[in-house]
Design a binder for these strands. Sequence first.
DNA 1: ATGTTTGTTCGTATTTTTACGATTAATTAA
DNA 2: TTAATTAATCGTAAAAATACGAACAAACAT
Lengths: 109, 109
Amino acid sequence: MAEKKYCIKTETLAGFAKALGHPARIAIMKFLAKQDACYFGDIHEELPIAKATVSQHLSALKDAGLIQGEIETPKVKYCINRENWAYAQQLFAEFFNMELCEKKEDCCK
Amino acid sequence: MAEKKYCIKTETLAGFAKALGHPARIAIMKFLAKQDACYFGDIHEELPIAKATVSQHLSALKDAGLIQGEIETPKVKYCINRENWAYAQQLFAEFFNMELCEKKEDCCK
DNA sequence: ATGTTTGTTCGTATTTTTACGATTAATTAA
DNA sequence: TTAATTAATCGTAAAAATACGAACAAACAT
């Protein structure tokens, strides 16, 4: 399934954007960015949502490649996947730095 | 409704990310960025989806503040909302440029 | 063996998203 | 007035996202 109707870069960027398209997931990324140790419990404490829901959001971020987890019994440690983070950073930078059409004001109001 | 559980910047960034979280909407933004004239019909031609669906995606981008439309009878002209575009650009830049925890390698594998 | 801690998965409900064809509205052309 | 063009909206269906409590699994401690 998932016949690609759009170019791969577009699909990839949209995938990253989608993964970041929920405040809980943005909050998780911000939290992970500033932590050395980043256990599930700490993340859960930061967020106003149930454990199961935190787990789901972590899965979404993991599926998107933005984070990775490691079991450190009895805890689970999460952190940013720096390689994919850098790639996402680059895709967003390219996207937002593409030059807009010559006219320097909005072409419509 | 919509009691805010997260800080406003986080909510705003997530909102922009969500709006960009579909390949059709990324494609629309890319298309608008390089066009002077950007009519609904042209956008529709670019995309492999039905008119009604294009309209929905345009509404989503408009609701997020990323684009704006103007009627130019009998057509409708769309373009990027440069002010909000710049703001989104800034929020994403801040987000991706936040420094990660000291360790230069991933803290887990 | 039992219990404790930690976090995932299951089951489920609700809401939102995505998509389409058909209808409608607004304007211009004949 | 009627027809044509353009695009939004309506109605609907199917899929995905969001959220929660309960049950479960894995490892360690008692």
